[in-house]
């Protein structure tokens, strides 16, 4: 059931993770993970707590605390492990954080402006009216009030507001690949619907999505093309969207029991 059939043609529009090993403080958390997400598809990673899902998200984005000891990650053929986090983001990788940082004193407007400006050629200045027109359009999509832009980034935000803010950034920055880390956690049903609607509206042939979640619930709203099950730092099972339902029914122990059998490699 391991992922196979990877291709390395240079024009591949895919995010490809190959035999990734990651440690933090000498403890191996990701242990030979392979996965590929083509643009245009939504892949869900499900797994129990402690399986390394969030570590995977942070490693892809380049968090300095984690050490990649082996393996590769390529985005449209380019090795991104050698790139700084900001370079990865400018190349088109986006991480929606499970716990977005609160940044007192920095307004949403200034923060997003800096993010958009960072994608422009050197010496070119962002046109303020265009920027706000774009921003307001995306905010309307996510049913966000205009006054939102003058608040400090995530400071005093409710769980729902934080997640909406993540999707707003995704909408504005138009990534090629988005990793959504537990975007459903901390959301009530209304917020979940708004956030899902936002993500669904961004789906399309130019975007690959890696959806990390603990619960099947989110996948009722954002229906994935593929579902992968991650246990103890590895993808142990992959399938179509029905796999999520099976998991919901049988629980993660079903997968764990399964992989305890030595025949499954």
């Amino acid at each position: 059931m391991a992922h196979s059939g990877l291709s390395f043609e240079s024009d591949m529009q895919e995010l490809i993770i190959q035999d990734l090993h990651v440690s933090i403080a000498d403890q191996e958390i990701i242990r030979g993970l392979s996965l590929s997400v083509p643009r245009g598809e939504v892949h869900a990673i499900m797994g129990p707590n402690g399986s390394g899902k969030s570590t995977l998200a942070k490693v892809l984005a380049g968090h300095p605390d984690y050490i990649v000891t082996a393996g590769s990650v390529t985005m449209d053929g380019e090795n991104i492990l050698e790139l700084e986090p900001d370079e990865r983001a400018r190349r088109g990788l986006f991480l929606a954080f499970q716990y977005p940082s609160e940044i007192p004193g920095v307004t949403i407007a200034n923060f997003l402006r800096a993010a958009v400006q960072s994608r422009m050629p050197e010496g070119e200045e962002l046109e303020a009216t265009d920027y706000y027109a774009q921003l307001y359009k995306k905010m309307d999509l996510l049913e966000m009030d205009r006054s939102f832009t003058s608040r400090s980034v995530n400071e005093g935000f409710s769980g729902g507001e934080k997640k909406r803010n993540e999707i707003l950034q995704m909408a504005l920055l138009e990534p090629k690949y988005a990793v959504l880390d537990e975007t459903d956690s901390g959301l009530d049903i209304d917020a979940l619907k708004v956030v899902s609607k936002g993500v669904n509206s961004l789906r399309g042939p130019d975007l690959g999505v890696l959806l990390i979640t603990h619960y099947q619930r989110l996948l009722n709203y954002i229906v994935p093309d593929r579902v992968h099950v991650m246990v103890r730092g590895r993808i142990e099972m992959s399938g179509g969207k029905d796999l999520a339902l099976q998991l919901e029914e049988k629980g993660y122990d079903w997968v764990k029991d399964d992989i305890d059998e030595p025949t499954l490699a």
Binding site: A61, P85, A89, S101, A114, Q169
Partner: peptide, 13 residues
């Protein structure tokens, strides 16, 4: 963590 959050949005260090 704040720094990483900004970097992850493409903003230079």
């Amino acid at each position: 963590e704040q720094m990483f959050y900004l970097l992850a949005r493409g903003i230079s260090a």
